[in-house]
Design a protein around this nucleic acid. Structure first.
Lengths: 203, 203
DNA sequence: TTTTGGTTTAACCATTTGGTTAACAAACGT
DNA sequence: ACGTTTGTTAACCAAATGGTTAAACCAAAA
């Protein structure tokens, strides 16, 4: 199920580029630093990926591809809204604890360059909110959920899950947590967030 | 109550720098572009603010100063938790509709450079969560609120308010909103968010 | 063994970029 | 009127940076 275990030069470059781009962003990253971290000559970067832009897009697409399946699950699974929320919060936060730079990287670069979506839509199955919307309205009609706008609910779910990773330094400072306290906070958050949402929408 | 109405060279520079830094970040911004946008020679930037770093810090501190009073209000006002939440959501979103680049700018740069807090703590009254925490616990004990961890609640509030501005391109694409639909979405969100939170925490 | 093809490197190049300098102008105090 | 401080500019500079090139390396084919 995992990607190639062989460490080819290309995967070494991608790994290094991922690390550097996610820490420093497109503008902040230096080709030399990526080459160093990959343990190769700078010219090799250009041999495998023609230029910085293309290398960046390769990394970005790969990063977004990791996110897409999870989004797809909230938006298109056949389980109940409640089940999907519980499932998503647990999955998303667990996943991001292992890839803490990912949310910041993705949202930052989408802001810098919104037309990336055109690019993305060609490379991966792009999720839409349509099914989720009708399912929410369905469950409201059935009296399972309190009335709520599906778009607002969707944004609430993403906000509560994604923001802590983007606002980590801010949160740590205001709440005066050290790193281990913050990690503990994130673990608790897996259920804290789904509980919170369920209480807000369940009749 | 407002800042100088006279358009001195210094304020022109700060305005231009704010605009460019918020759109492109520290690394992406070019001193020449700031000078052009301020309508002055590049050397003048260095005359007023010694270098890029100092100019950036001036802009960043000024941006964060706009946020601090609002945070202070949620964390230290003497009104009830519910009142503060309603008040904060309305204020924060209204304010950010007028300064949409601000949240992304601030959280992005705090990630890039977490030690900015040291800097900030010297320039502005830095808010802490202490009072909010005891107030939440107090209201839980009184049976006004359902049990909830105050830190989780605080992060929930900030998440729900701040994320839509950070994730704007993402949200617009997935929900298929155009710009005016998104603006309408934000307006509705002022009450949608506080309703959502209250439903989740009120007994 | 030689050839051949992809792979890797050191050296190089053009451009961009933050920052400096020196001259000049405007305002100011006396 | 005159020197001094403050504000402003054009020209310049060194360093950094993305990108190129030509040669070297090396495994597999012939």
């Amino acid at each position: 199920m995992n990607k190639p275990l062989t460490i080819t030069t290309e995967t070494q470059i991608l790994e290094a580029a991922k690390s550097v781009f996610q820490r420093k962003g497109m503008e902040g990253a230096r080709m030399q630093e990526i080459a160093d971290e990959a343990g190769i000559n700078k010219a090799l970067l250009h041999y495998y990926f023609r230029n910085k832009q293309l290398l960046f897009e390769a990394v970005f697409n790969s990063a977004f591809s990791m996110l897409a399946p999870q989004l797809h699950a909230v938006l298109n699974d056949d389980t109940s809204v409640e089940e999907k929320i519980v499932h998503f919060c647990d999955n998303y936060i667990s996943f991001m604890i292992r890839h803490p730079y990912l949310p910041n990287f993705i949202f930052q670069e989408l802001n810098r360059n919104p037309q990336f979506f055109e690019n993305l839509k060609q490379h991966i199955a792009f999720p839409t909110i349509k099914k989720f919307k009708s399912q929410v309205n369905e469950e409201i009609a059935q009296g399972i959920l309190l009335p709520i706008d599906a778009e607002q609910l969707f944004v609430n779910i993403i906000s509560l899950n994604a923001f802590p990773f983007i606002g980590k330094p801010f949160i740590k400072n205001i709440t005066d947590m050290d790193e281990s306290a913050f990690q503990e906070f994130l673990k608790l958050r897996k259920v804290a967030v789904s509980d919170f949402i369920i209480k807000a929408i369940k009749k």
